[in-house]
Design a protein around this nucleic acid. Structure first.
Length: 261
DNA sequence: CGTCCACGTCTAC
DNA sequence: TAGACCTGGACGG
């Protein structure tokens, strides 16, 4: 999916693009199998926050202090787009109609994104390593004795219970930035012996955010910023690096010096 | 034309 | 631990 940095940019985009707008209803595209979203307010404003790979859109009643959260994930390609009403994207699957001739759409070509009204953050996902760093570290330290940390660090970095927001490109770029760490080392030893590792789980997504997001083909940066992709991607999808399919069938990119035969 | 691949979960043997 | 869920771009014949 869009990973942590893209989620953060998405929340920022929702907030900036809908500033001053008043919404009247939310409609699901009938081709999508997801749940319908009924908003019991005749008029509402919206605001978004991200935490790891989740996004919550808050719906604020114009006529009362009531607020309803809408929990979302972006799947592999989900993003938001503000268009003139009637000009919505072919793959717009949730449309937030405003009374100002514009519509905010959740656009998701592959329809892997999900949503659930009335819910905030999932409790099976850990703290955000960028905005809740101390909690993120504590959550790992409190659980590091568990069996989950006996797996290779390159796999454990994708476990959202502990590394909420780290995805396939971030794990590759994080591990590549720690030259002495063998990415196939068990996670417990890796975390105990390479204290930089947890810090990089905060620093790398923050860096990607500053550059305007990962800039991978399926994800459209809503700000259209010109970012220097090459300064971020040193390993992921780089043909001079090695890659293998991991136990979860995701391609892991890594430094050839760790090549396993 | 066809096959493979993609920033992610999910649930069913 | 496979698949299922999806579309579309890249690339091969």
């Amino acid at each position: 999916m869009p990973e942590l940095a893209e989620l953060k940019l998405t929340a920022q985009y929702v907030n900036e693009s809908t500033n001053g707008l008043s919404f009247t209803n939310i409609k699901k595209n009938p081709v999508h199998k997801g749940l319908d979203v009924e908003v019991p307010f005749s008029s509402f404003t919206i605001g978004a926050r991200s935490r790891g790979k989740e996004l919550v859109v808050y719906l604020y009643d114009t006529n009362s202090p009531k607020v309803i959260p809408l929990r979302m994930t972006m799947g592999m390609a989900g993003h938001f787009q503000l268009t003139n009403t009637g000009q919505e994207n072919k793959h717009a699957h949730l449309n937030f109609y405003s009374s100002d001739e514009v519509t905010l759409s959740f656009v998701d070509v592959r329809r892997f994104g999900k949503w659930k009204i009335g819910h905030e953050w999932s409790d099976n996902r850990g703290p955000d390593p960028t905005t809740e760093y101390d909690d993120f570290v504590e959550n790992i330290n409190n659980n590091i004795h568990k069996k989950a940390f006996e797996k290779p660090i390159m796999e454990v970095l994708m476990n959202q219970q502990y590394f909420n927001g780290i995805g396939n490109y971030l794990r590759a770029e994080i591990l590549y930035r720690i030259p002495d760490l063998n990415p196939f080392m068990d996670a417990r030893s890796a975390i105990e012996n390479y204290p930089d590792l947890l810090y990089y789980c905060k620093a790398m997504p923050e860096y990607a955010f500053q550059l305007g997001g990962g800039k991978i083909k399926d994800w459209k940066n809503p700000f259209e910023e010109v970012s220097s992709r090459s300064s971020f991607f040193k390993c992921y999808n780089n043909s001079s690096m090695c890659n293998i399919m991991d136990r979860n069938n995701r391609r892991f990119w890594y430094d050839p010096k760790w090549e396993t035969n």
